[in-house]
Design a protein around this nucleic acid. Structure first.
Lengths: 241, 241
DNA sequence: GTCGATATATTGTATATACCAATTTTATTA
DNA sequence: TAATAAAATTGGTATATACAATATATCGAC
C-alpha cells in the first residue's frame, strides 16, 4: 500500500483519499465491506482523527462510502454516476448527449495503416484508418476509444472531418451508409500505465474493455472498436425484459 | 436574524447552515455577494471556527456558496445552483442476447436471515433467503451466484425445492409470480481466494461482477443477485440494433 | 433461554489552537 | 508616480481533546 508523506506539498487528507479510492477501485475494499475505523486510520497512517475524517467525509460526499453511526463506514454499492444503457445502436456522443452530459472528445491519434492480425480478423480488411480518442464527460475522462475503419469504405476521411462531427454521424451523413447492428463483448481488464494516466486513475485500476463490431445492412463491417471504460464512475447497465 | 442555541438538540453547524440558507433565500445575502468571513461568523455566533467552517462547507458542497482562498466566500449565481446529477437515469427497453446454457448448479449455502444494509437497499426487505450457488457448464465452473429473495414473497421455499428446479421456474410455477423486468450492471472485479478456488482459477484473476435486480409486474423486487463470472471462458455479448 | 442492564466500539459534534497559502491592502522605496 | 515590499486578511490544512449518540457484544438475574 502507498504511504502518506507529510513533506509532500499534497495535503495529507488528499493522499489518504487517493489511497482509499485506489483500494476501492482495486477491490481491496470491496463493495459493502467495512473500511478501517477512523481511529484505525489514524493509527495506520499516524495522522489525527480529524484529518482521517476529512478524507472519509469527502469520499462519502462523492458517493463512494457511507457511514453508519456506531457501526462503521462501508463501501457504497451503487456509486455509478454515469449509468449507461447502450440499448439502441448509438455512438458515444449521441448516447451521452441524450442524457444531458457535456461530452468532449480529444483525438489522440489519427493514422492510416496496415492493420495487425488481431484487427484484420475482426475488420475483414487489410488497411484501415486507426483513430484513438479520449472521451470526456462532464470534465471526467471516461473512456479511451480505439476505432478502426476500413479505408475502402471511408475514403477522404480526415482528422478535421472527424473533429467536427461524430463518427456515426459521418457514416450516415457523409457516406450515406445505413448502420444495421453491432455486436459487443465486455471483459474486465487492468489499466496499463498509459491508460491510467489518460483516465487520471491510479495505476493498475480495474476497468471494462468493450469490443464492438458494427455492420451495415449488407453485412459489411464498417468499424471495429476497442474501448476502455473506467469502472468507478461508469456502470454499464442493461434492462432485461 | 435567528440566533443559535447551544442547548437545542439540533447541531450548531446545522443551525448556522439553516440561518445562512435563509439569508440567501431572502436575498439578505445576494447572488455573487460576499458572506461574512469564517472568523466573523465565529464572532457573531460565538462558535468555533471549525464549526462555522463545517456549515459553510456543506453549503459549498450543496452548490449554494463558493470559496476563493484569500478573498472570501460568495453566494453562487442562480444558474450554477444544483448541478447535481441524479444517478437514476432510467432508460428504455433493450435487447440482450440470452444464451441458454445447459447448466448444472451446486448449492453452496441456503440460509434465511436478516440482510445487511447493502442488500436491504437493493431488495427493499429486511429478511431474505440467501442462496449461494456454483454454476457449472460442461464441467467447467462458470460463475458464483449469490441470490437474495425476500422471505415474505417466498414462504416455504426450501433447499430441496430449489434443488429440483430453477429459481426462475419456481417463481412462476410455484408462486405464480409474473416476472416483469430486471436491471443489471456489470463491473470488473478481482477474485478473492475463496472465489478463485471455487472457479478453479489462479488467485486474483480478473472476473466480471453482475448485479441484477428483478421486478414483478407490480414493481415488487423478487430477487437481487450478485454473480461473479469467470472471464476467460465467458464473454458477455450484447447485440445492438 | 430471555430480558435487561452494562460495557465497549464507532461515528457525530464541538472547541481551541497553530500554522500554511493565496489574495488584497498598505507602506516603502526608487 | 510606479514598482516593490511588507503586512493584513481570508480561506486551507492539521493536531489534540472531549463528550454525545448509536450500535453491538457481554454478562447477570430471573
Amino acid at each position: 500500500m502507498k504511504k502518506i508523506s507529510k513533506d509532500k506539498p499534497v495535503p495529507i487528507y488528499y493522499q489518504l483519499k487517493e489511497i482509499l479510492k485506489e483500494m476501492i477501485n482495486n477491490n481491496v475494499l470491496r463493495a459493502g465491506e467495512k473500511i478501517p475505523t477512523e481511529r484505525e486510520l489514524c493509527e495506520i497512517h499516524d495522522i489525527s482523527r480529524m484529518t482521517a475524517r476529512r478524507a472519509v467525509n469527502e469520499l462519502v460526499n462523492e458517493g463512494l462510502l457511507y457511514r453508519e453511526q456506531g457501526r462503521g463506514t462501508f463501501v457504497e454499492e451503487a456509486e455509478a454516476k454515469f449509468k449507461q444503457q447502450l440499448s439502441e445502436l448509438h455512438g458515444f456522443t449521441e448516447e451521452m448527449q441524450n442524457k444531458d452530459f457535456e461530452t468532449e472528445s480529444k483525438i489522440l491519434s489519427f493514422t492510416i495503416k496496415e492493420v495487425t492480425k488481431e484487427i484484420r480478423e475482426h475488420l475483414q480488411s487489410e488497411k484501415a484508418i486507426a483513430i484513438k480518442r479520449l472521451r470526456i464527460v462532464d470534465d471526467v475522462p471516461l473512456a479511451i476509444e480505439n476505432v478502426w475503419v476500413p479505408c475502402e469504405l471511408c475514403p477522404d476521411l480526415t482528422e478535421d472531418v472527424l473533429a467536427g462531427s461524430s463518427l456515426y454521424n459521418i457514416f450516415e451523413e457523409r457516406y450515406n451508409y445505413q448502420l444495421d447492428h453491432a455486436r459487443q463483448t465486455i471483459e474486465p481488464t487492468v489499466l496499463t500505465n498509459e491508460e491510467s494516466d489518460l483516465l487520471s486513475l491510479p495505476k493498475e485500476s480495474l476497468a471494462l474493455l468493450f469490443r464492438r463490431t458494427t455492420y451495415l445492412s449488407n453485412d459489411d463491417i464498417i468499424e471495429y472498436t476497442k474501448s476502455i471504460y473506467r469502472s468507478d464512475e461508469y456502470k454499464y447497465e442493461v434492462l432485461l425484459e
